[in-house]
Nucleic acid binder design. Structure first.
Length: 331
DNA sequence: AAAGTACTCAACCGCTCTGAA
DNA sequence: CTTCAGAGCGGTTGAGTACTT
């Protein structure tokens, strides 16, 4: 989005560091981007601090790196909303890794940690608001269309949720899924409302072991938190369908200025590009078929498709403070 | 059409990590 | 082993835009 140049700079003001040199802040100008790109072209995506020390830019190394990573790097899906697939990947990986946005981003070609972070933040805000919003009416569980009925976003969200999300089943007796699951969701189904509902806002990681590192770099790094399948892991026991990443969502386009450009031949660029074959994504909640069906409708209204419908059921069940009268009939 | 609200995204800050000296 | 600078990461902020009422 276009922002007034210098807006943030005015907002926060420039700063002088110990050297007395003024440090420019705020939105980047095209000329600055050009300088930064030139630096990367000649030096690679490193030595960020030298950019300023050489007087090329009055930006901190951190700022330069951030600009490169978030905006100038090739193959970024700038201005492209998260696809249904991407949303699910984020949700699942966040459950596994926590707020390790950089790590999660490695599974999403073209996405930066900032993208993922912003996406998640927006999602959390929306969910938080949903929890505060009173629910007056509930859509029929047999709702057959995804038509957005005029009404609260809550209702529409619930409706779409009912449409696509395999029911996790209630805790009273292991449940089948509304949509035929590609596997047995035993572990997932064991999650009670008590576990699921309070946690769905924060998405506390489930006790699952992640599958594999996203990149060779991670696997080979010294601290290599190489996630291995624990024998007790549900992943280990169940043949989860693997969601193959589409290269790029159809509606996304890669900046033509970068694709095929000589810059792509630069090892310095390649170094930062996502792995050519991202690790297959485990989708505990969503099987392949479900995920693909969901792709057909890539609206933000389907945002809540990711949540088990019982989560929304519980909204109705949340008793008012000090009121023991709430029914547990569905529990 | 105006006002209010929600959403998106760029960019900053502070902290931690890492590797070199 | 310690120190230090650079790099990287996660949290947060706030402006601009889109949407709703």
């Amino acid at each position: 989005m276009a922002r007034a140049p210098g807006g943030a700079a005015r907002r926060r003001g420039g700063r002088r560091d110990g050297s007395g040199e003024a440090v420019r802040k705020g939105p980047w100008m095209a000329e600055e981007d050009a300088v930064l790109l030139e630096h990367v072209r000649t030096h690679g995506p490193r030595d960020w601090s030298s950019i300023r020390s050489k007087g090329a830019l009055q930006r901190t190394g951190k700022s330069c790196r951030l600009r490169w990573v978030n905006k100038l790097r090739p193959n970024l899906k700038t201005g492209c909303k998260f696809s249904a697939d991407e949303e699910r990947v984020v949700i699942e990986l966040q459950a596994q890794f926590g707020n390790k946005w950089a790590r999660i981003a490695t599974y999403l070609p073209g996405r930066t940690d900032n993208d993922v972070k912003n996406f998640w933040s927006t999602r959390q805000k929306r969910l938080a608001r949903l929890l505060r919003a009173p629910l007056r009416a509930r859509p029929s569980k047999t709702r057959s269309s995804n038509t957005k009925a005029p009404g609260s976003s809550v209702e529409s969200a619930m409706g779409s949720c009912q449409d696509h999300v395999p029911s996790v089943g209630n805790s009273s007796g292991g449940q089948s899924f509304a949509a035929a699951p590609p596997m047995e969701y035993q572990d997932t189904a064991r999650i009670s409302h008590d576990q699921m509902c309070p946690g769905f806002l924060s998405f506390e990681p489930l006790p699952l072991q992640a599958a594999a590192p996203a990149t060779e770099g991670e696997a080979s790094s010294s601290n290599a938190a190489y996630y291995q399948l624990a024998p007790e892991s549900s992943f280990y026991h169940h043949p989860y369908h693997l969601l193959e990443f589409p290269g790029l969502p159809e509606r996304c386009s890669v900046d033509p200025g970068f694709v095929g450009a000589s810059a792509m031949d630069d090892l310095a660029y390649q170094e930062l590009l996502p792995p050519p074959h991202p690790a297959p994504m485990m989708m505990p909640f969503f099987g392949m078929e479900y995920a693909r069906d969901a792709i057909k409708v890539e609206t933000r209204d389907n945002f809540f498709d990711d949540l088990p419908p019982d989560v929304f059921d519980s909204f109705d069940q949340v008793p008012p403070p000090f009121s023991p009268s709430a029914t547990n009939s569905e529990l």
